[in-house]
Structures are given as structure tokens and as C-alpha cells.
Design a protein around this nucleic acid. Structure first.
Lengths: 245, 245
DNA sequence: AAGTGGTCTAGACCACTCG
DNA sequence: GAGTGGTCTAGACCACTTC
């Protein structure tokens, strides 16, 4: 589990800082040692330390105030809307403990809305998995996923968990060539609030995603996030190529 | 031709490169001059040029191959979600009646979070507009926008309404070259629930958008949508090439 | 005045690719 | 071997905040 030998020094400096964050040595709001002090402690030049801290700031882990100091950010995790990301990877990348618990896995007859979402005839047989993703033991995402058996016949035979999430498995066996995202806000159902351990009145961010391969739908998933624990975001260049409409 | 020069040299190097890209001097797939050559042309040190090119690479404008060269990235597809849309156009396109009512328009001293969002010093003077967008007389979006006066000095002199929304005006006078979207779910504040004519307990989809022009922030806006009346969506091809971390 | 981050320089060594 | 990017150093000057 312990991986050493990041070759780049600035990488090791970043890892060092993230280790302190992960270990809770430096907590949200704390001021961390100055660049000068880190130069002494780690034996690197200030430019190298500066690059490490600058990148951690861009990634949202730190907040720097010129003339004052560097502080641990109050983290409200944010993931990229454009990419198909594994929430597990995101959490691990933040240096946090990740877990995934499968609540349901089986084959069932598609209800009308599910069949419609997958563009299958009503009554078609589909795979269905429900799991909860947790960060540091706190549920951050409820995944309610339907899979087209025609595309992924071996889906049920997998041993899903923190090391093999459904999303990860699907990406590995069948890379999608198109996807659709729909985002909305809603309150959780009573089941959902129970699984996520939140109040029935807490607003949730719901991301519905469908992915295609060769013009056929691979999977349809609803990802439900408590608003207090999750955000979606993206930053990207604007193409000059579109006026309006 | 004459531009207010950004103070930081690496910024000017970035602007120089982006100017070449915008002007079409360097096109997608082209190899651009090496660091060494840019050092000579711009009269900066290699570290400075390197930082500029590294950041442009992280932002997706360039692709660098060690030992080979630096190339202009192929432009990325863009989704509806990530496109800057006018809600008025959307509503009109649906064949519905659209209206926009300005609730507030003026200049004020930026609070700390607003100053931070705009990357301005605390206490800076900013423009602030609040308006409600309605479809068939029903409010569907509350727009709470801050504008950088340095970028858009004539903002307050405009006569905003259904025929000239703030978003439309901004797009017309200063096309952004970069943007950031963050989406979250929340309950409306009491003021917001009043303006939107919804219950204080109705979940809302909140889209926060910042746009950049020439590496400076033009505007920061919070768009609040009652979940029962609005969704965001996108469908787009998947790029094969994704980097991690 | 002392401390902080923001930036910049003019070198340097390395691994890599290409002809 | 020449060219490229990737990284690193040991200084430096500046603007800013805090005491």
C-alpha cells in the first residue's frame, strides 16, 4: 500500500503536505509552516516548495494569503462534470479513506422508466446494482445503476467493492464513446436518506448519466449526493466556435 | 494593440501564446516554438516560460511531449451544460413567454467571498445585479451577478430587461476565453424563496459560473433554479484521452 | 521591522527523441 | 549529438500584513 519514490522533488513535497493533511496533523483552518520553514525541513529550494504549495492551492487543498500565510482549506470536494470519474479515485486522490458498500446486486425486469432510459422494450431483463460510496466513513454518494445485459453480460459475476467499483469495471470492459449528463436538485427518498444517513429534508444533487457504445446504451445511473458533502465542477477553455443559441 | 500589461511575466508569456492561438498564427496540431526560442523572443528566463507553457498545458490549450516539442491542442467538444446559455433564448425557443425583471442594479463594495471569487482585493468596488427570469410568468431562475468594473466599465449604464439580459450584454461586449462551472444543491435563502415564489424548503439547483478574458475574471454569477422547474443537461462525445490527477 | 507569499533569474543536470 | 521538455538550485526583489 505504501508507494514511495515519486521522482520529482516537488511531487514529494506535495505528498509530504498531503500526508500531514491525511494524518490530521494539519487540520482545516490551520496555518501550515511557511515556505521558508519547509525549505529547511525538507531540504529543497524555495522554488520547489513554492511549486508544490501553488499546485495544492490550485487543487483546492490549501488557501494562501500573501503576506499572511498558508492555510488548510475547508474542503468541499468537487469533481469534474465533463469526465466520467470514479468517485473512489477522487477520494483517494484527496488522501482520504474510501469505502464502497454494495447494497443490492441482481437481475430484474425493467420498470417502464428504466426501460425507457436504456432504450429497451418494457419487460426487458436488466442488471441492477445499488451501492454507497463513503469518504472517511461518511456516505457521499448513493449509486443506483442499471446495466444493459446485452452489452455487459458478465456484470453480475464481478466482486464489487472498494477495489472494483461498478463504474470502474464498466470503463475497463467497454469504453463509452458518448455520454449524457442531467443534473437536478431534489430531496432524498426515505430509503435514500437512510442509506446516505442524512435528514429527509437535506437537498441532494442528483446526477443522471447514460453512456453509449456503438450507439447502444451501456448503462444508466443515478448518483445522489448530499449537498453538504459534494459539488460538481469544471473549468475549461471556451471555444470561439459558438455564438449563441 | 496596446494592452494593459499584466504585472507577472509568466502571465504575459501566457497571454502572448494565447494571442497567437486566438489569431490563428498557431493552429491545432502545430508545433510552437521551443522554450529556448521563446526565452530569446520574449526576453524572459526559461523558468518563467516553462511555467507559462505548463499552465497552458494544464488548462488544455497545449500538449507537450518531452524530447519532442510543444503542440497546439485539438479543441475540445463542448456541452450544453458547459456552454454559456441565455435562459431567455431557451425559453423563447420553447415557444413560451419570457420576462426578466431587474431587482437590483448598482455599485458596491465587495464582501470577502465576492472579492475572492473575482480575485479582487477586499474592499474593491464591484457592480452587482440581481434579476429574476420567468417563463410564462413563473420564476425559473434567480440571477445574482457580480461584474468586474475594470473589465466592463459601462455595465451600469445599460437598460437591462427581457430584451437585454446582463448575460447577453456581457457576451456581446467581451467574449470570455475560459469559464468555470460549479453546481450544487441547496435550499433558497428567505429572500431567494420570496423572489422565486417558492417554499423555503424546496431544493434548488445552484449553478455558479465565473468567466475569464485574458486571464482576468469578468463576472461571477450564482444562478438559482427551483428544482421543480429546471434541470441542466448535456450530451457529448467522450474523448479518448484523459489524464489523471 | 520581521515575516509572508509572488515572482524572477541564470545557470544546471537529466531523460528523452530524432536524424 | 543536437534539440526538446522536466526539474532543480540559491540567490534576489517586491508588495503585503502584522506587530
Amino acid at each position: 500500500m505504501i508507494k514511495n519514490a515519486p521522482q520529482a522533488l516537488y511531487r514529494r513535497a506535495k505528498d509530504f503536505v498531503q500526508d500531514q493533511l491525511r494524518a490530521g496533523v494539519w487540520k482545516a483552518g490551520d496555518m501550515i509552516p511557511s515556505e521558508h520553514r519547509l525549505v529547511e525541513e525538507l531540504g529543497m529550494s524555495r522554488m520547489t516548495i513554492n511549486r508544490a504549495l501553488r499546485e495544492l492551492t490550485e487543487e483546492g487543498h490549501l488557501v494562501r494569503i500573501s503576506g499572511v500565510g498558508t492555510f488548510v482549506a475547508e474542503s468541499k470536494p468537487q469533481s469534474n462534470l465533463l469526465r466520467i470519474t470514479n468517485i473512489g479515485d477522487e477520494i483517494v486522490a484527496r488522501g482520504h479513506q474510501y469505502s464502497c458498500k454494495v447494497l443490492h446486486l441482481g437481475r430484474e425486469v425493467a420498470s417502464m422508466p428504466v426501460a425507457a432510459a436504456l432504450s429497451l422494450p418494457t419487460g426487458a431483463s436488466v442488471f441492477h446494482v445499488i451501492c454507497v460510496h463513503s469518504e472517511e466513513g461518511i456516505p457521499v454518494q448513493l449509486e443506483d445503476r442499471y446495466v444493459n445485459p446485452e452489452m455487459i453480460p458478465d456484470f453480475l459475476q464481478q466482486d464489487f467493492g472498494a477495489n472494483l467499483q461498478p463504474a470502474m469495471y464498466l470503463l475497463q470492459v467497454l469504453r463509452p464513446d458518448e455520454m449524457e449528463h442531467i443534473v437536478e436538485a431534489s430531496h432524498p427518498s426515505s430509503d435514500e436518506s437512510k442509506y446516505l444517513q442524512i435528514d429527509i429534508n437535506e437537498p441532494c444533487l442528483v446526477l443522471m448519466r447514460r453512456t453509449w457504445n456503438q450507439s447502444k446504451i451501456v448503462t444508466y445511473v443515478r448518483l445522489i449526493h448530499p449537498s453538504s458533502r459534494y459539488r460538481l465542477g469544471s473549468r475549461l477553455p471556451v471555444n470561439g466556435a459558438h455564438r449563441d443559441n
